[in-house]
């Protein structure tokens, strides 16, 4: 059956913590194969927005839908999502294979062992699959974490600073994997500080400041160097230049 709803739809989402408004009326939607790179300085609300999309936080206002369904109330919608964070979400006493197989079982993957092997091979960590996670370096742990998040072949992948701790090989494996996911029809939301890394895989780019999306661009028509300069001015200046599109 053809999927008519957007892969991810964020409608007027806000979230407050006490008096502080961490995310303020964010709207966007992504279709299958889209990748939104979300840039912004520390405290801009990027991670909070990602946690809202993942269903880990409840919006104060607005709604998030994945494939037309609410993540918070629909297990089938959650089964379509993979989350990669700068925290590994791994169990250090278990091996990479055990961690990935545990995730596969939670998602009801039929061939657990085969799926775990494929995910570990994709992230070029299969040779360390049976060592305890605690014995692995931070970068290798991040690769295992990514393997854990993609073992069920999610249709929507949420990535929070996924390049943190990765060396050149790990970064390349991640970039390859993100391109592969996009080409297979998965929608990605990539939160990062690094504009180059974000633009390398994204189809759209957005900048968040003080909880609001203050600029959105189509990467196909973007001059990366000019964008870098604009972004730097935006973040360091803390104000929105008049020529940039600001959502109402």
């Amino acid at each position: 059956m053809a999927q008519t709803s957007p892969a991810v739809e964020v409608s007027g989402v806000s979230r407050t913590f006490g008096r502080r408004r961490a995310v303020d009326g964010v709207d966007f939607s992504l279709d299958a194969g889209d990748c939104l790179a979300l840039f912004g300085p520390n405290g801009a609300g990027k991670t909070t927005l990602l946690r809202l999309i993942a269903g880990l936080l409840k919006p104060t206002a607005g709604a998030v839908h994945v494939g037309g369904r609410s993540l918070r109330s629909d297990a089938t919608a959650r089964a379509q999502v993979g989350l990669i964070s700068h925290q590994s979400m791994l169990y250090r006493a278990l091996t990479p294979r055990e961690n990935v197989e545990f995730a596969a079982r939670l998602y009801g993957v039929p061939d657990v062992h085969g799926a775990a092997t494929r995910a570990l091979e994709r992230m070029r960590i299969a040779d360390r699959a049976d060592a305890p996670v605690r014995a692995l370096s931070r970068g290798l742990q991040q690769r295992v974490s990514i393997a854990r998040a993609i073992v069920h072949e999610p249709r929507v992948v949420l990535l929070d600073e996924p390049y943190t701790g990765l060396d050149a090989a790990g970064g390349a494996a991640l970039t390859d994997m993100l391109h592969l996911l996009r080409s297979s029809g998965a929608a990605l939301v990539l939160v990062t500080h690094n504009v180059d890394e974000g633009l390398a895989v994204a189809s759209r780019a957005a900048v968040m400041l003080a909880g609001r999306v203050v600029r959105t661009d189509d990467c196909a028509t973007l001059d990366a160097r000019a964008y870098q300069a604009d972004y730097r001015a935006l973040v360091l200046g803390g104000s929105v230049p008049a020529d940039l599109s600001v959502p109402a």
Binding site: A54, L56, T76, R78, L83, M89, L90, R92, L106
Partner: peptide, 12 residues
């Protein structure tokens, strides 16, 4: 390592 987040995002 926030393993709880992986559980909460999963469909269980």
């Amino acid at each position: 390592d926030r393993g709880i987040d992986a559980l909460l995002v999963s469909p269980i």
